[in-house]
Design a protein around this nucleic acid. Structure first.
Lengths: 366, 366
DNA sequence: GTCGCTGCTGGTAGCGCTGTCAACGTTCCT
DNA sequence: AGGAACGTTGACAGCGCTACCAGCAGCGAC
């Protein structure tokens, strides 16, 4: 196809305009608001651009228009599976739009977040996606003063900067504990790693549910600031069991920890769920394939990222959502690891788990 | 810190220059090449910039200098753990440099890759990181014509566009099979998903090793184009076992599949490693915690991304590496799942050329 | 027929920065 | 002493695009 662009690779808007027989400004308008052109000129510019293989110079556009077509995304981790799902949703939503994603990693530090935010804002982004609701005062002020749409993701809270999409980690944890109560479990331990604000809120939910049932004891809780891993799940569970040998269930703040607990149980020949029930959080793919299959709290991570980016783009284009705060809810997916009904020896023709029983439905709005 | 910038948020280089008592161009030089200034002016500009909270306008800089400070990164998947480690390495290396990362997802499509490449190149990136060595002819031509440094990552091959960093998937697979031979395994199955070029080369390595030992049989190979998952590992293993009940080992093209195989063995009460040995690929964190612990081929993913970005940035700044192709090697980490000795993990084979020192995988848990 | 409106088009004037080159002062050589 | 060489600085002229506003038809309303 491309044949004319052999001159020197410098196809400017002016060249397109010349070939189309219009002024540069008309050609410019074609790319920003084609409807404003007469049909005749529109087709002329279109074919001229295609013929020349014109690609707009984004830097010039940004300089002249005083705004960029960049969406800044601040997330705490690039490794955590949870965020890679969210990110995929964001990238998928940005494809086909004219916005590009600029990603930065805060490494779970709100000071780092503040620094990155300052950097982003200086470039006048078209929009911003930030993780969580626990910004520094300074960050909060910058976000509030920013003249672009902003979406906070991963959780919901009472006081959105602008838009917000997520779910209540507190309610989700309470639902997980309630499920274990349903299974007649009483001595329910909690293990958590990293203890970022969202994990902390899961712990808070666990604590409140346990207190409501007058079953809370501090020694049932084992946490660490160390980043999460399966190996860490093994170790934390070992600690918990040493403290509390009568344990009959563990609620893990994420699925990696839950898998570690499962492995540790197997290593020690502790029957799951007969002696100890296990519940994880996030419902990563492997939970349904483990043996026994592992109960978890399903969260809508891809959808969260996708919806956040979609809402943001719509807001940038002037179509603000009628409902700026969106609760995506969660579901407790009951599987063998916490089920009293012994469906243990199932047909083994395939690795696919049997149908899952849903326990709780989307969370309430705050 | 920032106090003076309350005027109107429009601090330009001219303001900084004025406050520092120099010409704008001198102030500009301060940010690009501070060494070119006298010490007196340098400190004056520096403090003026800090006082005003000056942040350069990247769009203006890009327009005037005809180049951007963007490094384009093309990867096939945002979800795969392997790439999130690589990405983390890239982002870590880019921090502190003046380059920012622009990430795009090819979704394992070389046509999509070609399209994205065209898009990137039009913006004159400072450098490019692309995955693998299997580009379309058109992509290859564009890469060759690009006037920026380029690093191909994830594997090494005979004909680098520019720089290249990775390891031989073929050799790694051969080493894995050799390890199984050492453990007196003969009927070694292969399961693979997605079958992208790198997985294909692992299969090639497996096939060649098996043929060398006159043990190759087509029915030992089960593959699918479906994206990988633990559940898929269960299913593929079930297929394999149905075809070949006498199987005594499985080499899995990645660790998710290996975990699925382990779960399926447990479900069917097949003893691992007594009846069937399992070897995975990549050595993700959980492999060391599974019960039994799972043998895998360790690859240096974080280091690959980190080194690629570091090399690229150095090359952009004019310091090209003396060695443009870097083989990061691999190690077969023997664990219980393939060991007749039921021992702890130990490396048994290493694919790194003598010239390259093996650096331990930086903790994949984050 | 004139007025004002709407729809489309074009001219002018930058956006904030850097490439290029010239000019200056100083040092060091011959 | 003359001048070459260097280090340092500044003037100028855009980079490619778009905001803003003006102009100009064509139309209906009075």
């Amino acid at each position: 196809m491309g044949r004319k662009r052999t001159k020197s690779g410098k196809i400017r808007l002016a060249e397109v305009a010349e070939l189309a027989g219009v002024s540069p400004i008309t050609a410019s308008r074609f790319f920003r608001n084609p409807e404003a052109l007469s049909v005749a000129k529109r087709t002329r510019v279109e074919s001229a651009a295609k013929e020349l293989g014109y690609v707009p110079n984004l830097a010039a556009r940004a300089l002249a228009s005083q705004r960029t077509e960049v969406i800044g995304v601040l997330i705490p981790s690039l490794t955590n599976n949870v965020f890679s799902d969210v990110l995929r949703g964001i990238y998928d939503a940005s494809e086909g739009s004219r916005y590009s994603i600029q990603l930065s990693n805060t490494r779970y530090s709100i000071l780092q977040e503040e620094k990155l935010l300052r950097l982003f804002l200086a470039q006048k982004p078209a929009g911003l996606i930030v993780t969580g609701i626990d910004q520094t005062t300074e960050s909060r002020a910058m976000l509030e003063a920013a003249d672009c749409p902003i979406v906070q993701i991963m959780e919901i809270g009472p006081d959105p900067v602008d838009m917000m999409i997520g779910f209540s980690h507190y309610d989700a944890a309470r639902a997980a504990v309630a499920h274990l109560f349903d299974q007649a479990r009483r001595k329910i331990g909690f293990i958590g790693a990293r203890m970022d604000p969202r994990v902390q809120r899961r712990l808070d939910g666990y604590v409140s549910a346990m207190k409501d049932a007058a079953l809370f004891e501090q020694r049932l809780v084992v946490t660490t600031a160390t980043p999460t891993s399966v190996t860490l799940g093994c170790a934390l569970f070992a600690d918990l069991l040493a403290r509390e040998p009568d344990l009959d269930a563990v609620f893990c703040a994420n699925d990696d920890l839950a898998l570690g607990v499962l492995f540790e149980c197997r290593r020690r020949e502790i029957a799951v769920p007969d002696r100890i029930a296990i519940v994880g959080f996030n419902d990563l793919e492997f939970m349904a394939s483990a043996v026994p299959t592992l109960t978890s709290v399903r969260t809508n991570r891809y959808e969260m990222g996708n919806t956040a980016a979609t809402m943001l783009i719509e807001a940038i284009d002037g179509r603000r959502p009628e409902q700026p705060v969106l609760d995506l809810g969660f579901k407790v997916i009951e599987r063998q690891s916490s089920s009293s009904r012994h469906s243990d020896s199932r047909p083994v023709a395939s690795g696919a788990p049997a149908a899952n029983k849903m326990v709780a439905l989307p969370s309430a709005h705050d």
